[in-house]
Simulated assay, not measured.
Amino acid sequence: MLVKWIRCAVSDRRGFERGQRKWAGLLGEPGFRGQGGGWSRNRPGVAHVLGFWESRAFYDSAMARAHERLAAAQSGTFTDMQVKLFDHRFDVKTGFEPRFTDADTVRLAHCRVYPQREEHFALMQERIWNPAMAGSPGMVRGLFGEAPGNEFLILSMWQSAAERGKYQAQGVERLSTRAGTESDVAAITGDIVELEPSWTV
C-alpha cells in the first residue's frame, strides 16, 4: 500500500475546506483505498491530508487522470504544500485499514534515520515501540511507512488526543532509551492532527 502525506499552510480556511470535500471525486478510482485528514493541533493554519492507494501504479494513473480537475477547487487557498509518499512496511497493532470514522486524532512522526541504521530502526519499531503503542488504551491502529533517502513515517490513530497524551506521558523516554533511538534517528518532526469528518473519503 502507498501512503500519501500532504501538509499545507492554509491561507483561506473556508475555501480550503470546501475544496477538500471535492476530493470525494476519488471514489471509484481503481486502487484508491481511502483519504482523510484535519487540522494541526499545534500549528494554526496547517492542514494534513492522508491518502491511501493499493500501489504506486494505481496512484500514478489516478494522478494523471483526475488530479488537476480535483485540485483546481483548492487553488489559491494555501501558500505552501509539501507532499511525501511512503510505502507501507508493516502495521502498528494489527490489520491497518484506511478508516477514519472510529478515530479522533492522528499522530504523525516523520523520522530521518542515519545511513546504515534503517534496519535497526525498523526492528526496534517492531519489537519495542509497536507493542507499547498497541497496548495503550485508546490506540486504534497505525502503520510504519518507508520512503527513499532513509525517511520513515509512523502514523498512529487514536480515539482522542487525551488518550494519546497518556501514552506519551507514560514512557516515551524509557522506550526511546531501550530502542537506542538516539543512535538511529538524525531528525524527527511530526504533528498531531484533529480529524475533520467531512474530509473523509
Rank of each mutant, 00 (worst) to 15 (best):
T77E: 05
E151M: 10
R178A: 10
L85G: 13
R14K: 15
M157L: 14
P197Q: 13
G15M: 06
Q170A: 13
L2I: 10
A64G: 11
Q159K: 12
M81H: 02
M124T: 12
V49H: 04
V193Y: 08
M133P: 02
S156D: 09
R99M: 10
S183N: 15
L195G: 07
V193Q: 13
G36T: 11
W199Y: 07
W5I: 15
I128K: 06
V83H: 03
Q116S: 14
E196S: 05
G142Y: 00
T177D: 14
R41S: 10
G180E: 11
A122F: 03
R65M: 11
G76E: 08
E17Q: 04
R65Q: 14
D80V: 06
F144D: 11
E29C: 09
A134M: 00
G145P: 00
E118N: 13
G138S: 09
H67P: 03
R56D: 15
W23S: 00
M63K: 11
R41I: 12
Q82G: 09
H67N: 10
F152M: 01
Q20R: 12
T105E: 02
S11L: 09
F52K: 08
G135H: 01
R89F: 12
E126Y: 05
T181R: 10
G31C: 04
F78V: 01
V49L: 12
E151A: 11
G15H: 11
G38I: 02
D12S: 04
F152E: 00
Y167H: 07
S55E: 02
W158V: 01
M124F: 05
G36Q: 01
E118V: 09
M157Q: 15
W5H: 14
R117M: 02
G76H: 00
W158F: 02
P44Y: 08
R117Q: 13
T200G: 01
I128V: 11
V10G: 04
R7W: 13
A147E: 15
C8Y: 06
L143V: 03
Y114G: 03
A103M: 12
A57P: 10
S136W: 00
L175Q: 07
A109Q: 09
E68C: 06
G15Q: 03
G76M: 06
K4I: 14
S136A: 09
R7Y: 08
R174V: 15
R112Q: 14
R43C: 09
G165E: 14
M81A: 07
F90W: 04
R21S: 06
P98V: 02
E194L: 11
N150H: 08
E163I: 00
R21Y: 06
R43V: 14
F78H: 10
R18H: 12
L153Q: 02
G180A: 06
S75L: 07
D87I: 05
L123G: 03
G51V: 11
S55A: 01
A162L: 05
H88C: 06
R127Y: 08
M139N: 12
L123E: 11
A71M: 09
A64E: 13
A162Y: 13
S75Q: 10
C111Q: 06
L2T: 08
A24M: 06
I128R: 08
D102P: 07
H110Q: 15
V92I: 14
R18P: 05
E29T: 11
R21H: 04
G135D: 07
F78K: 01
